Amino acid sequence: MASQGTKRSYEQMETDGERQNATEIRASVGKMIDGIGRFYIQMCTELKLSDYEGRLIQNSLTIERMVLSAFDERRNKYLEEHPSAGKDPKKTGGPIYKRVDRKWMRELVLYDKEEIRRIWRQANNGDDATAGLTHMMIWHSNLNDTTYQRTRALVRTGMDPRMCSLMQGSTLPRRSGAAGAAVKGVGTMVMELIRMIKRGINDRNFWRGENGRKTRSAYERMCNILKGKFQTAAQRAMMDQVRESRNPGNAEIEDLIFLARSALILRGSVAHKSCLPACVYGPAVASGYDFEKEGYSLVGIDPFKLLQNSQVYSLIRPNENPAHKSQLVWMACNSAAFEDLRVLSFIRGTKVSPRGKLSTRGVQIASNENMDAMESSTLELRSRYWAIRTRSGGNTNQQRASAGQISVQPAFSVQRNLPFDKPTIMAAFTGNTEGRTSDMRAEIIRMMEGAKPEEMSFQGRGVFELSDERAANPIVPSFDMSNEGSYFFGDNAEEYDN
């Protein structure tokens, strides 16, 4: 993207840094990872977990959730003011799984939030270390993106479920800051804005008074975040219109849905970061690795190297396929839920299948599930090659597409044709070009129609051997075009429920 120079890199967003050079960025990201790792080690000690239990991804998720809940100030305040039966607002906890007599047992633990905050700050040299908290939120978000298709949420806001490739980060909490905003897809931002506008339509006082002023500035800020994701002048001009509207209503909703559809071809720039579970960072720190000293990046080879040398386990339900569970977590670790499966298959070195073909449910185990038949197995999170994460949407291309997802959002900077089903997408653009945004709409449609099938995206960008740390010898991959490109292809993934 041309304006790259004016933006802070995501590592800076990730670490609240002012302008830093590459070495400083690597050190501050490393410091953040160190903090998460030290916190995780301490929690495993508190909970008396064995090494194996500490490497269980379900335990990692519970521990991450506990610290996120302990620092969720708004919710904590709300819980104190609106006490609900049987919930102690000062405590947080969740299921911890232990191996007892050759069987997995679930144990519900409860801790004072104050105590968890103390352990977290102690692991982070006394700081609140917001960057580390956001990092864990993005890992949870990436896992949700890989596990669930947001059909219901899309339909509720009037969008087409086939636009799911635009929904990265749709389950990120509001408090995820600049680093969170960077990884949100165009569809996620559109959905947040539509929800806001709908509230304004239904509630006369939404934009009024002292609160209304705050609401208005939040609305304009979200519009600017979305505008910054678009790469064409016409899309940005249309966002200006939406932002400046005196009284946002149905016309703005129409414009936003139009823009979301246009992003299936004229893709937005959305950041991709490899955020790993805390149970990967903990053992690495415990083994003596100093992330701050060595430096770390979320968008280069580092996460690949770390996963190459990590042992992570997962509980497996009786009829689940461990290899499929591994694929789910591998995609989440690489922030690749909406990437082209052919690119992923090449990088991973084994075939990556669409969601609907995987015999696996989510990673988390519900409290009512029976533990008797639970097994555990090693997650295979290694890769054959590594590639640089991208934040450009890439230019655009036609490809055989599917009944489910009709476009992709690249996660890796790797040369390819970008699949999208042009006739299906263009069919949504018939007729409606009147109104105050008509010239911009016409211009956007013209650009979409001009998108050429034979153009290559990320020209000359390749993948790298894991021994090639400096990215000196790019390998331009070859793809098996007979395979499906979309992950949520004609899909039956479970729906995400809060």
Rank of each mutant, 00 (worst) to 15 (best):
M238G: 15
D340K: 04
I116T: 07
A218R: 07
E292Y: 07
T45S: 04
S217C: 13
S310L: 12
G393Q: 08
R246T: 05
L79Q: 14
E484L: 15
M456H: 02
I63E: 09
Q4V: 01
R208N: 09
D302I: 09
K229Q: 02
V414M: 05
F488E: 11
S345A: 15
D203Y: 05
M447N: 04
L47E: 07
G431V: 12
S482C: 04
Y496P: 11
Q327L: 06
V352C: 07
G200A: 01
A323E: 04
N247E: 09
V352E: 03
L307V: 04
A387D: 13
R74Q: 08
A233K: 04
W207F: 12
Q409I: 02
A123I: 05
R348C: 12
R156D: 13
K305L: 01
A332I: 13
E53L: 00
G295D: 10
R65K: 08
P453F: 13
N202G: 05
Y313D: 04
E80I: 03
C275L: 09
F206R: 07
D372S: 01
Q231D: 10
D127L: 04
Q311R: 00
P410D: 10
F338K: 10
D302P: 05
Y496W: 15
I316G: 15
C275D: 10
V242A: 04
I41W: 04
G209E: 07
E294C: 00
I257M: 04
I201K: 07
L466C: 00
V312G: 03
A218Q: 09
L259S: 09
G185S: 00
M426A: 00
M66W: 10
A218T: 01
D340Y: 03
D127C: 00
L307Y: 15
Y289T: 09
N142L: 02
S170P: 07
C164H: 05
M481H: 02
A251H: 10
S287A: 10
E369C: 11
G490L: 11
V242T: 03
S69G: 00
A442W: 15
S467Q: 01
C164Y: 12
E339D: 15
R175Q: 10
E339W: 12
P419M: 06
R361H: 10
G228H: 05
G54K: 05
T147A: 08
G177K: 13
I444A: 07
E294I: 01
K103C: 01
M481C: 08
D88I: 09
L256K: 10
V109R: 06
E73P: 00
Y289F: 04
N334V: 07
P161Y: 09
K351P: 08
G5Y: 03
V100E: 14
V352G: 08
T92N: 04
R436V: 13
Q12T: 01
R436F: 10
R389G: 15
M43Y: 09
R342D: 15
I475N: 05
E294M: 05
A179T: 14
K91L: 05
G185Q: 02
P453W: 06
M32L: 08
K214S: 00
Q405I: 10
G187A: 02
G356T: 08
S438L: 15
G86L: 13
S486Q: 13
S457Y: 08
F206P: 01
A234K: 08
Y97T: 03
L56E: 05
Y148D: 06
V363N: 07
G35R: 03
D497W: 15
W386T: 11
S359P: 13
P453G: 08
P322K: 04
V299M: 08
S310I: 02
E107T: 02
A332D: 14
D480S: 01
D468H: 09
L344E: 10
T15L: 05
A233C: 06
F488G: 11
T232G: 06
P303G: 10
R150N: 14
R19L: 06
F71A: 03
M448L: 15
S170H: 14
T390Y: 10
R400S: 07
T130Y: 06
